[in-house]
Amino acid sequence: MFVLEDGDSVPEDLQDTEQVEGAIALGRMAYAVAGQVKDAFAQLADGPPLAEVPLVQDAEGFAAWVGAKRTLTSRGNLTLKDARDAWETLQLWRRPLGGAEGAFVWRSAAECSPLDAAFSAAVQQHVEVVGKQLLAIPLSGLTGAEAELEVEAGRMGALALAVEDLGYEWATASDLVAMWANAVLLCGAIGRVPSRAEVRDFWRHWVGGGGTGTDRQVELALSLGEHLGLLRVDGDLVRGTTTGVEVLTLWQQSREEGLV
């Protein structure tokens, strides 16, 4: 059993030492401020299942859209015609920075953030770039439980990489980590699920001695946290998720090993 510095133990369903250590490391300073680690972990929202995370759905939908093959530009991007078609097919205007329905305004596929994110996540598992071709990756041949484990590992890896890649493009990776950690910590500190405004204010006044985050950064971090399954937003209420523990732990380990 993993025991915290204050003598409390982590709830039984979160006693995987590696995951808990990783999560605590992400918010060490904030935990000291909140002083309610056990309660914070206890109030994590379950899941979501990886198959229900929006970015995972986009990546798998993108792979289905690619089919057997798509031709890329000399820069390795989708053609503008294909980019517009993929954006419309996957309804990416519903995603953060996705634009307005029926109005594809980008000059290249790489400029459309949700499409670029789906492309990058799909390359981790479903498709590969060979020269100027985007090709479907042949199935591994595994079946049953082994096949499912392979799929889940690919999904988790894509999400961990997205914390790094999308964080730097849309806000910062530290913004995403801080947003997740502070949603968890505030929940434990006040003894209830916090509102969006409360999490926003806590984030702005705590991060780095704070107050430097713009409203746009905060809103993007919240939206992206939900997009990656790190946060669950129910109406005006924001909760950290157990999936967030796993994704951010893998992200942290990958950073330490120089993989991202």
Rank of each mutant, 00 (worst) to 15 (best):
R75S: 13
V10F: 09
G7H: 05
F62L: 13
G99S: 03
A59S: 10
W93I: 00
A45W: 02
A51G: 04
V56H: 05
P49E: 15
D82P: 04
L230H: 12
T172S: 15
W170S: 11
L134H: 03
E256Q: 15
A221N: 08
L231R: 03
S9D: 12
L248E: 03
D215G: 11
W170T: 10
V53W: 02
G27W: 12
L4C: 00
R84P: 01
G240Y: 09
E246D: 12
V123S: 06
E256R: 14
V127S: 01
A63R: 01
D46I: 01
G98L: 03
D82Y: 08
W251H: 12
G209W: 07
D82A: 15
S74P: 02
G208C: 08
F119S: 04
L50M: 13
D8R: 15
G188Y: 10
S254Q: 12
Q57V: 02
A34M: 09
L142H: 11
L224I: 15
A122T: 09
T249I: 02
S174P: 00
W180Y: 15
A45G: 10
L222W: 07
L115H: 06
R216W: 06
L80D: 04
R200M: 11
F104V: 00
H126V: 01
P11D: 13
M179P: 05
S108E: 06
A40V: 01
A109M: 14
P114H: 10
A109Y: 08
T73E: 05
A121G: 09
F41D: 03
A121F: 14
Q253F: 04
V247R: 05
S140Y: 02
E164S: 14
D236A: 14
R255V: 13
V193G: 09
A110I: 06
S195H: 05
S9E: 14
I190A: 03
L159G: 08
E152N: 04
V20Y: 08
Q124V: 04
V218L: 13
D85C: 03
D165T: 09
D6C: 11
A25D: 09
L44F: 02
R155K: 05
S254L: 11
P96I: 09
R239N: 06
V33D: 12
V3M: 07
R95T: 02
H126E: 02
V245R: 05
V66R: 00
A100Y: 09
F104A: 01
L72C: 08
V184N: 01
P48D: 07
A63G: 10
L231E: 05
L176P: 03
G102Y: 03
A178R: 10
V37N: 02
A51P: 00
G240N: 04
A51V: 11
A34N: 10
T89F: 10
L230E: 11
A162I: 07
L230G: 08
A110M: 09
E52H: 14
G35I: 04
A189S: 13
T242H: 02
R95W: 03
A103G: 01
A153M: 04
G211H: 06
E219Y: 01
A118F: 04
T71P: 01
G98M: 06
R204M: 10
M156I: 05
D46K: 13
G61R: 05
F41I: 10
G22R: 05
E18S: 12
L230M: 06
